[in-house]
Amino acid sequence: MTEVRITIEDASAGTNKNLKVIHIGGQLDESNVDEKIQEIYKLLETNPQNLYLVFDLENLEYMNSKSIGYLTDIYGKVTEGGGKVAIAKARPNIADILQVVGLTQLIQSLDSIDAAKTALAS
């Protein structure tokens, strides 16, 4: 299994929102995505309403189309619950693949986590 690390940080302090930053590092591919993505779905189950998510992709080296499918699904679930999603610090190759599948039309991609938080606050 290819290595991938997903950590979820509570960034709600100082805001009036239920804000989480999800740090993803390594490579999300066919060998690991079905298992690892469940950590994020568990978060959605326990926070079904008004969840604000920033995906920090600074250390993400690779993602495949299924990973993008999951991101799209998570975006749908979060927005249905009245929340918002943003992406931060995607590397050029990750930004490139997000753009070609059209995900950047749905989810804002920002250069920093602070910028992503600001975008979610608006």
């Binding site: 495949n64 189309s65 299924k66 499918g69 070609v100 599948v101 059209g102």
Partner: peptide, 11 residues
């Protein structure tokens, strides 16, 4: 609409 199906067409 699903998780899969983007790879061959979109990538």
């Amino acid at each position: 609409t699903g998780i899969r199906g983007r790879g061959l067409v979109k990538i």
